[in-house]
Design a protein around this nucleic acid. Structure first.
Length: 503
RNA sequence: GCCGCGUUCGUCUAGUUGGCCCAGGACGUAAGAUUUUCAUUCUUAAAAUCGCGGGUUCGAAUCCCGCACGCGGUACCA
């Protein structure tokens, strides 16, 4: 049984790269008929941000990524929050200690800092490893009675992993193949902090084992510490899960990891939901609040680093689940592309039913204090849907269906309202008043009998009419619009335009 | 610095066992068609000497080696 987990730390809003990691885990789990678990990694108490955990849960609900077990729903392997599992870790740390895989280290943060500065001065980098540990303040270097004395007197200490000297450790990565690193170059990572909490490295291994995780699908930034994790499994005598390290999501311009700053700078969200930072008070934009459809975000994200092996790009969640494969995950980082994101959004917006779009439009119409018959709103929605990408554009592109223009676009006026135009408009009013108010009759009277017969410029007349009725020279078929608005309303608008724009 | 990962059109990528690839699709861009306008839609085009340099081979984007560049890691953060 495949069991995967998404394990964010609740230090703020969920980054879109994290969302993609969760999505790949989810697709894999569902395809394999396995379980998807949400575990909160909050071993760093200093970085706790209130609301972050709730944010993460809400984001996944919005995106349609469902969990089988997790902090919010419980499950047979709980608790699913590491701070709630605190009591559990110590015994495993002791097990490592007893087996000689870990040791006490009493070096203070200040001492470590000084050491690093000292090395830096010589243009070297200090690393707490097999070559330096005997010169430090730990149970490997100190006499046994001294260690005991410090322990007894309650000196603060951490537990460090004791890397074996000069052994090659190979990580079998499902995406990259075998990656080998030598333990000599790896540092003795802290496993257990002086505050009584494990670090990520220890907690992660203990929890994955206890929760029977079979596949660890996580970001590439974890690859360098994968050998440590492999060694920990070995030290415990546990079977390690399979690993897959995902390529990073890069900023649209230049190189480097996609960050919140890039989003602010380039004007796109890097978070699924809007986020109000409780500390700084600043608000970060979210895909949901921007009007993105969750299925568009999911589809876009799925294709950033993975492909189905053919040319298909539009896929529902079910199709993604069916088609997903770790083999088709690419190795290189992917730059986020805003244009492509907008394209996905447009595609999915078009798939919305007329009624759904009408409901969105209706809300906006009502918010402008206007009541319109439902059928009319649906008709407008179905006509205008295809030229819209975000729900927020609805009112702006459709407002003239519900209210007369209050102003006329200056450039359009300059270009289209030629001298003598008010005379033509008066004629249009005359036609509207005398000719049967139906499409064919109006078309004949206006386009054929008046414009063509008098060798007038069709574009000029029709665009001025549009300007009068809409306020701009954009919109759907002019006669359809006239018919929808009604004779009286159209005449009123033309008259007002003649008065306002004049000649 | 050291360690690791990566490198195909501007961007996402196809290319998994070397020949069907003088490299295919999509987004974007440009042009055209359609429309009374805008948008949609449709058609077409430009766009990668497959990071560079060597090999191996009848034949390499695909295999090997070197180099360059980019990124990640190098915390009592995850």
């Amino acid at each position: 049984m495949v069991r995967v987990r998404f394990a964010p730390s609740p230090t703020g809003p969920l980054h879109i790269g994290g969302v993609r990691t969760a999505l790949y885990n989810y697709l894999f789990a569902r395809q394999q008929g396995g379980k998807m678990i949400l575990r909160i990694e909050d071993t760093d108490q200093t970085r706790f941000v209130p609301g972050a955990e709730q944010y993460i849960i809400e984001a996944f609900q919005w995106l349609g990524i469902e969990f089988d077990e997790g902090v919010h729903i419980g499950g047979p392997y709980g608790p699913y929050r590491q701070s709630d599992r605190k009591a559990l870790y110590r015994q495993y740390a002791d097990q490592l200690l007893a087996g000689g895989w870990a040791y006490y280290a009493f070096d203070t943060p200040e001492a470590l800092d000084a050491k690093r500065k000292e090395y830096e001065a010589e243009k070297k980098t200090f690393q707490y490893d097999c070559t330096t540990r005997l010169g430090m303040c730990n149970s490997l270097a100190l006499p046994a009675d001294e260690v005991q004395r410090r322990l007894d007197s309650g000196d603060p200490y951490v537990l460090r992993f004791r890397f074996p000297e000069n052994t090659d450790i190979t990580v079998h990565d499902l995406i990259r193949g075998d990656v080998t690193m030598n333990s000599r170059l790896l540092d003795d990572k802290v496993l257990f902090k002086s505050d009584g909490m494990p670090t990520y490295h220890l907690a992660n291994i203990v929890d994955d084992h206890l929760m029977e995780i079979t596949h660890v699908i996580r970001g590439e930034e974890w690859l360098p510490s994968a050998p440590l994790h492999i060694m920990l499994y070995e030290a415990f005598g546990w079977q390690a899960p399979q690993f897959a390290h995902l390529p990073l999501l890069l900023k649209p311009d230049g190189n480097g990891k996609l960050s919140k700053r890039d989003g602010d700078r380039l004007g796109f969200p890097v978070f699924p939901l809007e986020w109000h930072d409780p500390k700084s008070g600043e608000t970060s934009n979210g895909y949901r609040e921007q009007g993105y459809l969750p299925q568009a975000v999911v589809n876009m994200l799925a294709l950033l680093g993975w492909n189905p092996g053919n040319d298909q790009e539009l896929m529902t969640m079910d199709e993604l689940i069916r088609l997903f494969s770790i083999e088709h995950i690419s190795k290189n980082g992917a730059k986020f592309n805003l244009d492509k994101a907008r394209w996905f959004q447009h595609e999915y917006f078009q798939q919305l039913s007329d009624d759904t779009v009408a409901d969105m439009l209706d809300t906006q119409v009502k918010s402008h204090g206007i009541e319109a018959p439902h059928e009319y709103v649906v008709k407008v929605a179905s006509m205008m849907k295809e030229r819209i990408t975000f729900p927020g554009e609805l009112w702006d592109t459709c407002s003239y269906f519900f209210q007369a223009p209050t102003e006329y676009n200056e450039k359009d006026v300059a270009k289209r309202w030629q001298p003598g135009m008010e005379g033509h408009m008066a004629k249009v009013i005359e036609i509207l008043e005398t000719v049967p108010f139906e499409y064919d009759a109006l078309h004949q009277a206006l386009l054929e009998d008046y414009i063509k017969a008098n060798q007038l410029n069709t574009g000029a007349i029709m665009n001025s009419l549009r300007l009068a009725v809409v306020g701009r020279t954009v919109g759907p078929d002019m006669l359809t619009l006239v018919l929808m608005l009604g004779k009286d309303e159209v005449i009123r608008r033309i008259q007002r335009a003649i008065e306002t724009i004049g000649n």
